[in-house]
């Protein structure tokens, strides 16, 4: 089954939300517009709409997460859905149950949507290919492959700060591109939205093979890589990368690729700094930058709720019977 038919139904609506690649520009803009309408809801005193009343959503997390799971949970609750959090690392998988058996059991409980995080690339696709047709799958991160809601909340943030014309923007993504599902999704989203230039900046050990084929310009020097850019997205550096002989030390990494006020001067004067969190202060960025006026890191978190509400409601509405 092609990715298009898996994610998009015959009416062009979102069935599952698995990866950015395979979607189209119109759909991304629809998600952003819908999120914009929900952003109002989250700012009201009564933060609820009844769109998914009576629906049951399961957060199926095979990998630990706080931020993503919490914002998905909040998003579902603000859509008036019933939410169940299942942390599989501590339950079935540990008892030897296969992923497929876990799914079958949950299906039998008449769930409407799974929000899935899994350590294996392709897990969300696998689940979408194997669940009952009435269930929607939202990918909350699979291996190194995709984290599409994170990418969409980043696009939402960029659009709010910089306006809707991505064509005039230069965006640099800095850090561990190799292992980052966030970076892969961001690159696809930025390119689908016709961003002027997408750059990735990292030492060669953290750049995947044929990275240019994703539609990026590759830089190995931070100052050159962020020269005149309008948006800088810093990625989290996992501490275990030091053990894998990918980097010599946090110290050297911060020296060369850590974002400081000093280095920031090479970017466009009104540059916006983003980070999907959680930040390693003093490793990928200085506190001064993280907490500074150009940082929108906390806005990203807030926007995460509206974007996830948008994706969940859109995926669920494609299941509704069409009006006669």
């Amino acid at each position: 089954m092609s990715r298009d038919s898996l994610q998009i139904d015959s009416n062009g609506k979102l069935r599952h939300f698995l990866s950015i690649s395979g979607l189209n520009r119109q759909l991304l803009n629809d998600i952003l517009d819908t999120a914009e309408s929900f952003a109002g809801v989250t700012e009201q005193t009564v933060k609820k709409v009844p769109l998914l009343r009576g629906k049951t959503i399961v957060n199926l997390f095979f990998e630990a997460s706080t931020r993503t799971r919490t914002t998905f949970e909040l998003a579902a609750k603000r859509l008036s859905a019933d939410v169940l959090n299942i942390n599989i690392t501590q339950s079935s998988a540990a008892k030897g149950e296969t992923l497929l058996d876990t799914l079958r059991n949950l299906e039998a409980m008449h769930i409407d949507m799974f929000v899935v995080r899994h350590a294996d690339s392709g897990a969300a696709h696998f689940i979408a290919n194997n669940v009952a047709p009435h269930i929607s799958i939202i990918n909350a991160g699979d291996g190194r492959h995709s984290h599409p809601t994170q990418a969409m909340l980043d696009m939402f943030t960029i659009r709010r700060v910089k306006g809707p014309d991505f064509g005039r923007l230069r965006v640099a993504i800095v850090g561990d591109i190799m292992h980052s599902r966030v970076a892969r999704s961001q690159i696809h989203a930025l390119n689908l939205l016709h961003t002027g230039e997408v750059r990735i900046v990292a030492p060669k050990t953290l750049v995947p093979a044929h990275a240019e084929s994703l539609g990026t310009h590759v830089f190995h020097d931070l100052r050159k890589g962020i020269k005149d850019v309008d948006v800088i997205i810093m990625l989290r550096l996992q501490r275990e990368r030091m053990q894998g002989a990918l980097l010599p030390s946090e110290h050297e990494y911060f020296e060369l690729f850590g974002l400081t006020e000093d280095k920031l001067a090479h970017a466009s004067p009104d540059v916006t700094v983003m980070h999907p969190g959680p930040i390693n202060r003093g490793v990928e960025m200085d506190s001064e930058v993280a907490d500074g006026p150009r940082s929108v890191i906390l806005e990203q978190v807030t926007h995460g709720i509206a974007v996830r509400m948008a994706v969940m409601s859109m995926a669920m509405s494609s299941k509704e019977p069409t009006m006669e």
Binding site: S21, S121, G122, D142, G143, R144, H145, S146, R181, R184, P208, A209, H210, A211, S213, L214
Partner: peptide, 11 residues
């Protein structure tokens, strides 16, 4: 190669 890079599969 480019497929593993796109799909995020360990190469």
């Amino acid at each position: 190669g480019h497929v593993a890079t796109r799909l995020g599969l360990p190469g």
